[in-house]
Design a protein around this nucleic acid. Structure first.
Lengths: 132, 132
DNA sequence: CGACAATACATGCACGTGCAAAGGATGCAA
DNA sequence: TTGCATCCTTTGCACGTGCATGTATTGTCG
C-alpha cells in the first residue's frame, strides 16, 4: 500500500520467495512420493493413473490422444508412451478415428475400469493424508 | 464444525482434494519450467543452482557431500553427479577431509561464486513473477 | 489435379534420476 | 597384525521424460 511496504518487499522478498518456493517443492515432492509408493501396489504410476482417471470421466470413456495431453501434465511423446504401457497391460485400447485417420482414440477397457476403481480409494486417501 | 460439515466433507472431499492437488502440480510445473528456461541462459540447471546457492551461504563456502544432500532435494547419487558436472565446469572443487578421509568437501571456486552471483537476480525475478 | 503446409501420433536419442551394488577409508576387537 | 563392521561416496543399470525427427493423413492454394 504505502512506500514502507515496498521497502519491506525489497529487503525481504528474496528470502521470502526462496522459502515459499522451497515449501512448494517440498510439499510437491512429499505428495508425489507418497502417491508413487501407494499406486505402485496397483502396478500404476502417477501418469498412468491420471490417464485412467481422465478416460473414466470422459464421455463414452474415450478420448483423443491430443485432448488427453492437454489435460494431463505430459508432453505428447510421454503421453504416447504412457498409453502404450497401459495398452500392454490391457487397461486401454487404441483405435483410429474413422473420419480423420490421423486421430487416435484411447478408450478404457473393462479391466482398465476395474483397475481404476480399485486404485481410486488409495489415491484419495493419500491425498487426504498429505494435503493440508 | 457441525455434523453438516462432516457430510459435506464426505460428499465433496474427493473433488476438492483432486483440484487442490492439481493446482499444486500446476504451480510447481509452471515455476519449474520458467526456472529451467531462465537458468539455462547461465548454463545452469535447477539442481546445479541449488547446490551453488547452498555452498555460497555455507561457512567457508564449503560443505560435506552428505550435508548437501540433506539440504538439496536429491539422492546421494544424483548429488554426486551434479557436483561432478559443476566440477567439470570449474565452478566447485572437491577435496578429501584431512582428519576423516572418508568425507569429501565441496567448495565454491571464484568462478562458481561469480556464476552464482550472475544467476541470482534471474532466479529471484523468476520466483517473483511466478509465485502468488 | 499437384505441390506444399498443417495436423496427429510414434520413435530415436540424450539426459537426469533413484535404487542397488561396488569401491575406498576408517575404527574396533581379538 | 588380521578380520570385520561401518561410513561415505561413486558407479552400473533401468526408467520416464522432453526435444527433435519421421511417417502418415488431411487441408489448402494455385
Amino acid at each position: 500500500m504505502s512506500v514502507g511496504g515496498k521497502v519491506l518487499d525489497m529487503a525481504k522478498s528474496e528470502t521470502l520467495l526462496a522459502e515459499q518456493w522451497h515449501a512448494l517443492v517440498e510439499q510437491h515432492a512429499r505428495v508425489t512420493i507418497a502417491l508413487e509408493r501407494a499406486l505402485a501396489e496397483h502396478d500404476l504410476g502417477i501418469s498412468e493413473y491420471e490417464v485412467l482417471a481422465e478416460l473414466a470421466s470422459a464421455p463414452e470413456n474415450e478420448c483423443r490422444m491430443q485432448q488427453l495431453s492437454g489435460t494431463v501434465h505430459l508432453s505428447q511423446s510421454a503421453l504416447s508412451r504412457v498409453v502404450s504401457r497401459l495398452e500392454e497391460q490391457g487397461l486401454v485400447s487404441r483405435f483410429m478415428c474413422k473420419d480423420d485417420r490421423r486421430g487416435i482414440f484411447a478408450t478404457l477397457t473393462p479391466a482398465g475400469r476395474e483397475r481404476y476403481e480399485l486404485a481410486r480409494p488409495t489415491h484419495r486417501s493419500v491425498l487426504a493424508q498429505n494435503l493440508s
